[in-house]
């Protein structure tokens, strides 16, 4: 199972990288969110996918799952939710203002006015 999940994380990173390398805003933004998901899956897998009871007081169980990675992933997901939505709005505004969603046309020039 861990092997499968590692491969999945790799596939997500690969797909995300492919999307980020394209030229359209919306593809890039979706690509970054896929990369973040890859990182989250990786975090989940790295902590071990053992089966165990939830780590709550008063529960009789031989093994407990490690709660820390889940807390970490929740935090990371919330952050990536916020950043992705900001990024969406930014991409939209940039498209409105510059009139293009092609990153090739957004190359920096030396003039700053």
């Amino acid at each position: 199972m861990e092997i499968l999940m590692s491969i999945l994380a790799g596939v997500l990173f690969m797909a995300g990288t492919y999307m980020v390398l394209s030229r359209s805003f919306i593809r890039i933004i979706i690509g970054t969110s896929i990369i973040s998901h890859g990182a989250h899956v990786l975090l989940l897998t790295m902590a071990g996918l053992k089966t165990g009871a939830p780590p709550l007081l008063g529960l009789e169980a031989g093994t407990y799952s490690d709660p820390l990675p889940q807390a970490l992933i929740l935090t990371a997901i919330v952050i990536s939710f916020g950043v992705t939505s900001f990024f969406m709005v930014l991409g939209y505004r940039a498209y409105k203002e510059t009139g293009t969603d092609d990153t090739d046309r957004l190359r920096g020039t030396d003039s700053y006015d």
Partner: peptide, 17 residues
């Protein structure tokens, strides 16, 4: 910065493992 943050999470994952 979004991509480097994703790599940060990946780094944390490996370190925790």
């Amino acid at each position: 910065n979004v991509i480097s943050s994703a790599l940060f999470v990946a780094g944390v994952a490996y370190l925790y493992a």
